[in-house]
Design a protein around this nucleic acid. Structure first.
Lengths: 157, 157
DNA sequence: TTATAGATGTATCTCAAATACCACTTAATG
DNA sequence: CATTAAGTGGTATTTGAGATACATCTATAA
């Protein structure tokens, strides 16, 4: 049981953009966290489709929050990005091949537990994840200047 | 985000043994659900190590519950079988490479949500998952006799 | 006005981990 | 002692994360 990296990265993008309160390119964000630029781009696409961020193409383009951090719900993001229909085989009507479906309380128990999980996340807005934005930026900057740092250093700007 | 098949299978073994309230071989259980015998054996091993079931080798051997269904907690099983330290990168002190650890509230939020998930499962005992054991057995039997059924039919016995 | 740099966007390949399968060994009992 | 079942190690397969490469768009500088 693992949160998809896709969702993890999505939340990092949102936190980064919220902290910067300005647009940023995928290269910048990928460099800041030292993660795959191309994978991050795919994640950013998902966020665009969810209308949580906006993309501007071309030179001086980038991504920016489309909604205020106070209005972005963490549970919403996780619900949208995690394909919870396949949390366990019997959740997926299509591929379910479990012979005891209906006679087994596991489905209901897991469903309730998953609901509790999401309900808890619903209590958080993006802004709640960033209690100290200065510290957030400071740590990213320190990381950028640490050994093994990527060639680009757009954070310093 | 998916529950490992390993955990799913573990719960199926437990439910099967509880319903039968007798010992059963891995072949029997694998046949009943039409899932991999060898994989299921590995899962059964995990349950033996957790002392939830007992193994008897040799002819007329098999697996049987080591604890009453009313005393096996679903949350306990899931906690033991799912490696939740790697639920998200920053949970694992060893491999965590996130530069904003400490300045980011995501870790706390996810931790709380995961706790809510497990707490919910703690409300269920194995016996709660089996409200109608006759129906459970009936469906398994029907599945066994359906087309594409495996050659062995130990359920009929 | 046009070339170019800097950005988003997309198609495809590689690799690792989870899962499934296979062959074999060991143990117990009828 | 033959049979049935647990137990083990190794190998194939599948799936999704991540990497690579390339295509497309647009502001800006010459």
């Amino acid at each position: 049981m693992r949160l998809n990296l896709h969702t993890d990265y999505a939340l990092r993008i949102l936190m980064y953009l919220a902290t910067k309160s300005d647009q940023a390119s995928v290269d910048e964000i990928a460099g800041a966290f030292r993660i795959s630029r191309n994978h991050l781009m795919k994640v950013a696409r998902s966020l665009v489709e969810l209308q949580l961020i906006e993309a501007r193409r071309g030179r001086s383009g980038g991504f920016a929050l489309a909604v205020a951090p106070e209005a972005i719900n963490v549970g919403f993001v996780v619900r949208k990005l995690e394909s919870l229909e396949s949390f366990v085989e019997c959740f997926d009507r299509g591929s379910n091949n479990c012979p005891v479906a209906g006679a087994c309380g596991l489905q209901g128990a897991l469903n309730g537990a998953l609901a509790a999980f999401l309900d808890k996340l619903d209590e958080y807005m993006l802004s709640d994840l960033l209690p100290d934005r200065n510290r957030f930026l400071r740590q990213l900057k320190a990381f950028d200047q640490a050994p093994n740092s990527p060639k680009t250093s757009p954070i310093a700007a």
